[in-house]
Design a protein around this nucleic acid. Structure first.
Ligand SMILES: [Zn+2]
Ligand SMILES: [Zn+2]
Ligand SMILES: [Zn+2]
Ligand SMILES: [Zn+2]
Lengths: 132, 132
DNA sequence: CTAAAAAGCGTTATATTATAACATATTAAC
DNA sequence: GTTAATATGTTATAATATAACGCTTTTTAG
């Protein structure tokens, strides 16, 4: 059960763009695609992205500085993200695997840290790219 | 068993700096700390960093754009990294846990991707910061 | 040995990613 | 309806990273 968030105009415009994209989008790519809708400055984009990340509608792919819509019906687990990334075609998929998320959410290291969040990125070759 | 790499002068200077640091260092922090040693341009730093990452002597903390020396005697598993990051004091520790690395190295998602690498970052509060 | 290939270096310029600061507007809470 | 919290618009600038070029050193293979 997660809180519904009413997106503001800028947030909605930017979320729509990311959501319909088949690949992660970078901030300045987003900017150039929404300028016709009146969003003119980087900061307008970054502010919307920050909020969308915060509420779990999108995730940042850290190794790519790019943003992807949440694939898990707006991640209850926006604080527990895992992705697979093809190093050849750059296809990114959000991994939804309850065994994995349980394992990681329960993980304790010896230093006694209290974890509230994790991000995992797998790299390799997707099915399509393996056979090439 | 991992190949020994003889570091070049620039690589050695930069590795030494990172290795003796108690915290992850950013590229331009590194630059300003090695200018007295004759390394004058960002590219010289980035080239050394790239190589050091490639051979597993250092790792990049993606969420922080910063670099840390490998804690695992030059990571045989430089392609399988895990870190814990305190969101209060920014202390970063490389996690060395064979159960975790086995679990992740053997992880298969349903899409049939062939993984060759992963990076995991846990976020939370370290022991010291919890009690504050 | 030695020639060719690969890796590294130095330098200048530039591209890409992200935030600071400030004034105004909109929305939500009381 | 006033107040507080969020969001917006704008300009400027900071921080991170790479392109391109010519040269030198090291490694590899014959
Ligand atoms: Zn998600
Ligand atoms: Zn692929
Ligand atoms: Zn390591
Ligand atoms: Zn801490």
């Amino acid at each position: 059960m997660h809180k519904e968030h009413n997106l503001t105009k800028n947030q909605q415009i930017i979320f729509n763009l990311i959501d319909k994209s088949s690949e992660p989008l970078k901030a300045y790519t987003i900017l150039s695609n929404v300028q016709k809708k009146g969003i003119k400055a980087p900061l307008q984009v970054y502010r919307a992205l920050d909020k969308l990340v915060e509420i779990g509608k999108i995730h940042k792919i850290e190794s790519r500085n790019a943003f992807i819509a949440c694939q898990n019906s707006s991640c209850q687990v926006s604080k527990a993200t895992a992705f697979s990334i093809c190093e050849s075609c750059e296809k990114v998929t959000e991994i939804s695997n309850s065994n994995l998320s349980k394992y990681l959410s329960n993980f304790k290291d010896k230093a006694g840290m209290k974890y509230s969040k994790y991000n995992l990125e797998f790299f390799g070759l997707c099915k399509k790219c393996i056979t090439k």
